[in-house]
Amino acid sequence: MTILQVAAAGALILLGIGLYGLLALRNLIKVVIALQIMVKGVVLALVAAGSLSGQINLGQSLAVTLIVADTVVAVVGLALAVQVRRRFGSLDVRELSTLRG
């Protein structure tokens, strides 16, 4: 297996695990963790794509942007979780659904 194939496989598997986490997890902080895992896969994919097309530095710069954006998402998500916990006394997403029709 070449390093590129390993990276591609890793990207897909991490993405899958993250997605599953998003679907199955009910704790808000763990939802953020699942999101992080997904983004790791994407970073891997970006860099692999850069390497494959011979523009590794372009892939790197995009990956950096993604890491920054992802970190901001994590920060905001965690802050939100803290606030939810304060207001609802729980981190369960089911408690969050105030839409009752």
């Binding site: 390093i3 590129l4 390993v6 990276a7 890793g10 991490l14 790791k40 970073v43 891997l44 860099v47 692999a48 850069g50 390497s51 590794i56 892939g59 790197q60 990956a63 950096v64 890491i67």
Partner: peptide, 14 residues
């Protein structure tokens, strides 16, 4: 671990 993989891919800075 992903960081190590990235390093191996040649993306040292990232």
């Amino acid at each position: 671990l992903v960081a190590v993989l990235l390093y191996l891919l040649g993306a040292h800075e990232v």
